[in-house]
């Protein structure tokens, strides 16, 4: 029982990190129909910036993560305007390659400036302790991740489901042509969404560094997980990405704790089967369902 609850908590906190990073990717891939393999790079950049701020300049942890999110958002906006925009009209292969190219450049740049060794996780003292949660002592850091992830999920839900911008966004995901023809500035919406998604990724990379350790190949190593969240949840589906991220976090954790000899095998097998069964993911938006 204790082990079951531990898996559930570990999986949920891990899933929350995946969610924070991937939700932007889900929305941008759903909205812009662009295969974006560079999303992990923005998370990585966010994580690196936060770590350097904390370790070298002594900036407080929370402030550093927010600054990292802002920086990742700005970089994302610049990338959207300069390299992503010409990409929307191209096929999947150019999209794949250009975004891999961006990953390479990001990896090279971070290694050049920070170095090739993995970075230590920045967990502040007030999170680096055990909390009694009834049946066992549990790291405060992981509880913090669950709370922050839940909070962000709620905020994103508010924006998407309860604001005018969100209503427009949903309309544009479901039918971009129609959205354009009723006068929405879809391309500005692209930029804003992209900035938001990258900022979230940067934040996720920064707060989640204790779960997904930062190293130069972060952008490619964990990319598969982010893409799985998007594909399993259904592109462009906010609810889908939350469900998928938590499910993946819990299943992967359960697999690693109970049958370590199979490692990630179980997860990939499930993803493979699920995508054969439902090619558009668990909860696809109306446009593709």
């Amino acid at each position: 029982m204790t082990q079951f609850l531990t898996i559930l908590l570990d999986g949920t906190s891990y899933g929350m990190v995946l969610f924070i990073i991937s939700v932007g990717l889900t929305v941008t891939m759903g909205l812009m129909r662009v295969v974006n393999l560079a999303h992990g790079a923005f998370a990585m950049i966010g994580g690196y910036i936060a770590t350097v701020l904390v370790l070298k300049l002594g900036v407080p942890f929370l402030l550093a993560t927010v600054l990292a999110a802002i920086a990742a958002g700005i970089l994302g906006g610049l990338a959207e305007i300069t390299v992503y925009r010409p990409l929307y009209r191209k096929g999947e292969l150019p999209q794949v390659l250009l975004t891999i190219g961006l990953c390479f450049v990001a990896i090279a740049a971070l290694t050049f400036f920070v170095g090739p060794t993995p970075l230590p996780a920045i967990v502040p003292a007030w999170l680096d302790q055990m909390v009694d949660i009834g049946f066992r002592l549990y790291p405060a850091y992981r509880l913090f991740l669950i709370v922050v992830g839940g909070l962000l999920a709620f905020i994103v839900w508010l924006i998407i489901e309860r604001s005018l911008f969100g209503a427009r966004l949903r309309a544009a995901v479901d039918d971009p042509q129609m959205a354009r023809s009723v006068g929405m500035d879809v391309s500005r919406m692209f930029t804003i969404t992209f900035v938001g998604g990258c900022a979230l990724a940067g934040f996720g990379g920064a707060v989640g560094a204790g779960v997904l350790p930062l190293e130069p190949f972060y952008a490619l190593r964990y990319l598969v997980y982010f893409l799985i969240v998007v594909a399993v949840g259904g592109m462009g589906s906010f609810r889908g990405s939350l469900v998928a991220a938590l499910a993946i976090g819990i299943i992967d954790t359960a697999g690693r704790y109970t049958v370590p000899q199979f490692g990630g095998f179980l997860l990939y097998l499930l993803v493979f089967a699920l995508l054969l069964w439902r090619p558009n993911g668990l909860l696809p938006p109306k446009s593709v369902a």
Partner: peptide, 28 residues
């Protein structure tokens, strides 16, 4: 035979998953 009825991003993910499966299998 299993994956080529899909297209686009789904196909991309399925090819990725196959390679990942083999990687894990070879690793273990």
């Amino acid at each position: 035979m299993l994956i080529l009825h899909t297209r686009g991003e789904t196909l991309l993910m399925l090819t990725l998953a196959i390679a990942a499966l083999l990687y894990e299998a070879a690793n273990h």
